[in-house]
Design a protein around this nucleic acid. Structure first.
Length: 269
DNA sequence: ACTGGATCCTGATCGC
DNA sequence: TGCGATCAGGATCCAG
């Protein structure tokens, strides 16, 4: 899916449209994504949003009386188009604005979500999230503490939402490469000196990917329909059998926690 | 409390 | 060309 940089790219793309125009109508073309789309969602009709935030990989689209919570799942993308454009296959959810534009949520695999959170309510899925990686709450001391009881692979740990949010399969591999840590290293045995590097690498790779509009492998597009351009800067993800840019060893692929993981056996130890 | 496995779903690709 | 197996950017739920 869209990991944090792709969701942030989507948020930035939506912001000017949702702040400048009222919602006219909401159209649900497919009733159930990961969960059923609640009918309360239609309560935003006729209203103007007061802002859009990102928390973890969730988009929080705020109105005075509550929030539309959206997740892109593995294959979701949001686009802003003219409402006159024909729907495309897998356009499951649509919001028409008074400006004549439409926000369309396209998600072939339907692992995404559109939920409603009333004011004063917090959805369960937003309750137990760890810190945002790009804030100071995510630092070496915190990470060391958060990993202290984890005996599994470091890669699984940094992809766990209670530890830190927003790091998915691509950026986990990339951050571990940048910090020289093997993805199978036992989480609570990684030295503090190396955690310093890891924290820094996670922040760097996410920030750079946001600057490039995210990574497009297949389905993801920015809200204007363009891809993200960070794929050109990937060091290891998807590069099995190719040369490491750093040392010319061959990049390896190994399944860890049921997810493909890529690393350089020479640079990462 | 933490870990591994199964699970939701469509579509692209690969080997036979 | 067709067909089945495998693999995808997520994360929840369950058993152990």
């Amino acid at each position: 899916m869209p990991e944090l940089p792709e969701v942030e790219t989507t948020r930035k793309g939506l912001e000017p449209f949702i702040l400048s125009s009222k919602v006219k109508t909401v159209n649900i073309h497919f009733k159930t994504l990961r969960w059923p789309i609640p009918k309360e969602i239609t309560s935003i009709e006729g209203l103007k949003s007061i802002g859009i935030e990102r928390r973890a990989k969730y988009l929080l689209w705020h109105f005075k009386h509550g929030t539309v919570v959206m997740h892109l799942g593995m294959s979701g993308a949001m686009r802003i188009v003219s409402s006159k454009e024909p729907l495309q296959k897998h356009d499951h959810f649509e919001v028409i604005f008074t400006s004549g534009k439409a926000l369309r949520f396209n998600d072939p695999r339907r692992f995404g979500a559109v939920l409603w959170q009333a004011k004063e309510e917090t959805l369960d899925i937003l309750q137990s999230l760890g810190p945002e990686p790009l804030t100071n709450d995510f630092n070496t001391n915190y990470l060391q503490q958060a990993l202290s009881k984890r005996k599994g692979a470091i890669k699984n740990a940094i992809m766990t939402n209670q530890v830190v949010v927003g790091v998915g399969n691509i950026y986990a591999s990339e951050a571990l490469f940048l910090s020289g840590i093997k993805p199978t290293a036992i989480a609570n045995k990684v030295s503090k000196a190396r955690l310093v590097k890891l924290v820094d690498a996670i922040k760097q790779v996410l920030a750079k990917a946001i600057a490039e509009g995210g990574t497009t492998l297949k389905d993801f597009t920015q809200t204007d329909g363009n891809p993200g351009y960070f794929a050109q800067q990937l060091n290891v993800y998807g590069r099995e059998g190719e040369d490491c840019f750093n040392c010319n060893a061959i990049i390896k692929r190994k399944v860890i926690g049921q997810r493909a993981s890529y690393y350089c056996g020479n640079c990462q130890r």
